[in-house]
């Protein structure tokens, strides 16, 4: 593949970072992640047992009470196991305010092609100011 893949997005919480993409088809509740390992510990969650640490995490929406979501992400940040950035379809106030305050880059309104073309484990660079997600390497599966 030679053409540079760049997908537009909409900034919610600012930042520039690069990392591996991890997709979740289920909504995220960060209180149900183990802060020490970054692993999801929610039964019946599609990422159960997988770590969100240092990932660019892509999921539909946050869920859960206004309190525990914040504490969950906070504990992950303290242990250096938070996602590098989050990409959502439906932002909610709880997750938005949490990401802004904890300084975790967050975007939404990502081009549909991103969801069709980019795969788990590929590396991307997210730039919220430019409003772009650029694929920088394709994983060798």
């Amino acid at each position: 593949m030679t053409t540079k893949q760049v997908y537009p997005c909409h900034k919610i919480s600012e930042g520039v970072c690069a990392g591996e993409v991890l997709f979740s088809k289920d909504d995220m509740m960060f209180y149900l992640c183990d802060p020490v390992t970054g692993k999801v510990i929610e039964e019946n969650h599609c990422l159960n047992g997988q770590s969100v640490s240092e990932k660019i995490l892509v999921f539909p929406s946050g869920k859960g009470s206004s309190v525990v979501q914040t504490d969950g992400l906070y504990q992950l940040v303290k242990q250096n196991n938070a996602p590098k950035a989050v990409i959502v379809e439906h932002p909610d106030t709880v997750l938005v305010s949490t990401c802004i305050i904890l300084g975790i880059p967050m975007v939404d309104q990502v081009d549909e092609a991103f969801y069709q073309c980019v795969k788990n484990g590929e590396s991307v660079r997210l730039n919220t100011e430019a409003g772009t997600i650029e694929v920088i390497s394709v994983s060798h599966v």
Binding site: S66, V67, T70, D92, V94, S97, T98, I101
Partner: peptide, 21 residues
């Protein structure tokens, strides 16, 4: 709106909320 604890506190401090939802 369904505020978070954080955003409700920021609303109390600033006295304002963004108009949405």
């Amino acid at each position: 709106n369904r505020e978070s604890a954080l955003s409700a506190l920021c609303a109390g401090i600033t006295g304002v909320v963004p108009e949405y939802g």
